[in-house]
Design a protein around this nucleic acid. Structure first.
Lengths: 124, 124
DNA sequence: ATATTTGTACTATATACTTAATACACTTTT
DNA sequence: AAAAGTGTATTAAGTATATAGTACAAATAT
């Protein structure tokens, strides 16, 4: 379990995002049990209430389900699971393009820079 | 004056960013007078204190300078001015790559999507 | 059966950001 | 000279997020 928090977004949303990333990469799969609220709070060093809030959010988005007083599990709804990866990528691109839009960067310059930094980033 | 705020970042930082974008695109130039705190607060419908905080931040970053009781002006330091565009672009790319890094998207797929969405975004 | 572990709920406090309302010294305009 | 517009500063209050501490019913493990 390896989550690096930023100070910008609410922690509970960053936790949700972490699970989405795990789903997107296939690191966690349909029906799999997720850590309890208290467990994940301890391992991420966050407050159990914050963990609860994250799980509640995931439940509302249909990512996990919970049977009364049983550990929560990743949904088995393949439709939802399959959409996660695309959702994350497209949303990242959207945010990115919105942020550079006001600067009028030519597409070629932009792609070249992204490519360059992508490679550099991997090598780190 | 056309600033669209999001609810994620502090308003004063979004104002700073707006001025950086204007500098990056050459819409405002070295030595140019900027609106007074009260003026920009009125036109952006934000609190004068928030405007003051944004200007104070810009002053600390060397983007504007203020002679006692005179309207603030864009710096004439070309070194600073020239670095703004690159700073904005590289920071956007950095944030973008950080956000997709955990998903392990192949560079080709990523570039293709960025290109596709870039074009689609312009046509809007 | 007892203890531990589930999920869930509630109240209180701390912090960061924003807004609100003034105030003051100095410059420019009238 | 008076009025309006500069930048700057201070204090107070509101909101969202995170933390802290506690509680309870139900399931599981011992």
């Amino acid at each position: 379990m390896n989550v690096t928090f930023n100070n910008r977004d609410p922690v509970y949303l960053q936790v949700v995002r972490y699970f989405k990333e795990q789903i997107a990469t296939g690191s966690i799969i349909a029906g799999q049990e997720v850590p309890s609220r208290r467990e994940i709070a301890a391992s991420l060093k966050i407050n159990p209430n914050t963990a609860q809030r994250a799980y509640k959010e995931m439940e509302e988005q249909g990512l996990i389900y919970t049977e009364r007083n049983h550990p929560s599990r990743i949904t088995t709804d393949q439709k939802i699971l399959n959409s996660v990866r695309e959702e994350l990528i497209l949303q990242a691109i959207d945010t990115f393009l919105e942020s550079v839009k006001p600067i009028n960067v030519p597409v070629d310059e932009l792609l070249a820079l992204v490519k360059e930094k992508y490679v550099a980033n991997i090598e780190e």
